[in-house]
């Protein structure tokens, strides 16, 4: 759905990702980048440094020894992962839970709970299906609904109307959006993610997480995110605006080739994995 001029104009005024993160993303694009170059950039932002070290030392990675420097973290987790962590942390920073307006309908803590669970679930599925980069899958899952939080923060009144409509008529959030005509969290998310220069894979996952058949590239990754979103709603982990379970699209199901027995096992492991990602939740609550 095309978004209105009004929305586009407002998006222009949205904050960008911190320059440090943008720079890291640029550096990681070059295979000849040395660890020292990244750690130098990160060290410019002590808060980010602390958060990165917190994450890499968390149960999420379960590294058996203390990691004390960013260089160390890069050499252990790899350049890509450190970049993804930095991106995730920055997005959390932008949309702090406590930054919400007073007439809050949208529960940001519950939202991040859902987002982290989808990230964890996407990573689990990615591992299970031998997708090449499970950490990329995590960040895609984590950010899939970023459009909603943008709407809540910067288009608060319109967003609240959609929320009320969804709640009063017991609609899926996306169906309530369609009624309102000029709202589309997936599209807003896509535009913002692109503006921030997030990797194409993430942009496509955000844009198509309700419509896995809508993209010709990153098909697997989108299917993973879409399915994880549905699975986490079935498991009722967190809340992203409605408590209804959307239908799992056939395109995704065909892509993943999962068996019902796989799901039982997945749900068991999901709780474990969500616990491991607890550090992210801390950031969502306190930053």
């Amino acid at each position: 759905m095309p978004i209105s001029e009004n929305l586009l104009k407002k998006i222009e005024t949205l904050p960008t990702l911190p320059i440090v993160v943008t720079r890291i993303m640029q550096l990681v694009e070059n295979p000849k980048t040395a660890a020292v170059e990244i750690s130098k950039v990160v060290s410019l932002d002590p808060a980010l440094t602390v958060k990165i070290l917190k994450i890499v030392n968390s149960a999420y990675y379960g590294f058996p020894k203390q990691i004390t420097t960013v260089t160390h973290a890069i050499m252990i987790l790899g350049f890509e992962d450190v970049k993804n962590i930095a991106m995730g942390i920055s997005v959390f920073d932008i949309f702090k839970a406590k930054g919400a307006a007073s007439d809050v309908i949208f529960d940001r803590v519950a939202f991040w709970q859902h987002s982290i669970a989808v990230g964890a679930c996407t990573k689990l599925l990615a591992k299970k299906l031998r997708y090449k980069n499970p950490e990329e899958a995590f960040i895609c899952g984590l950010l899939h609904d970023i459009g909603k939080i943008i709407l809540d923060q910067y288009f608060h009144d319109e967003f609240n109307k959609v929320m009320k409509l969804a709640r009063d008529e017991n609609l899926l959030f996306i169906n309530a959006e369609k009624r309102m005509n000029d709202m589309d969290h997936a599209e807003i998310g896509r535009v913002v993610a692109k503006r921030w220069g997030l990797p194409q894979a993430i942009v496509e996952c955000i844009a198509n997480h309700h419509n896995p058949a809508g993209s010709e590239t990153n098909v697997m990754l989108i299917a993973l995110v879409h399915a994880s979103d549905v699975f986490c709603k079935i498991q009722k982990i967190g809340n992203s605006g409605d408590m209804l379970v959307p239908q799992l699209q056939k395109a995704a199901w065909d892509q993943l080739k999962l068996q019902p027995t796989d799901l039982t096992k997945l749900y068991e492991e999901l709780n474990e994995e969500v616990k491991k990602a607890d550090t992210f939740m801390e950031f969502a609550k306190t930053t």
Binding site: P31, K32, T33, A34, A35, S39, T71, M75, F79, R130
Partner: peptide
């Protein structure tokens, strides 16, 4: 391999961690 663990290679290098490039790890 996809199915199982075969082993691990350990190397001792006279090189600082900082100077490793992304492609080295790849």
């Amino acid at each position: 391999t996809q199915m199982e663990t075969v082993g691990v290679i350990f190397m001792y290098c006279n090189k600082s961690a900082e100077s490793f490039m992304q492609q080295d790890l790849e």
